[in-house]
């Protein structure tokens, strides 16, 4: 992890705007790759996105990677739920009219 100064005992320096931007970009690239191979949960893609994953891990802290990966699954579930709710409300409207 580049921005921890290499040493774990040292106190972490804050993530700069630039660091954050780089982390988000590599994350987006990795998730795009997962989308292409049709994998939702990070780590289940085999060797498919190895290059993107390496960059992602180089530029983001472990805690951030865990957080982003979890959120990707949650966002997907939310999308499903929202779509389901939409279908249900449309059906209800059709039944009423």
């Amino acid at each position: 992890m580049g921005w921890f100064g290499g040493s774990k005992s040292e106190q972490a320096t804050p993530v700069s705007r630039e660091n954050r931007q780089k982390c988000w970009e590599t994350r987006d690239a990795y998730f795009e790759c997962l989308d292409r191979v049709g994998v939702l949960k990070a780590g289940e893609e085999g060797k498919a996105c190895a290059k993107e994953n390496t960059l992602y891990e180089e530029n983001c802290a472990k805690s951030w990677i865990e957080y982003f990966n979890k959120r990707r699954i949650l966002a997907e579930q939310q999308k499903d739920m929202l779509a389901q709710a939409k279908v249900q409300s449309q059906e209800a409207r059709r039944a009423n009219s």
Binding site: P14, V15, R17, C23, W24, S63, W64, Y67
Partner: peptide, 9 residues
Amino acid sequence: FTNCPDICP
């Protein structure tokens, strides 16, 4: 907090 991934910034 300063180590906040995306919401805080």
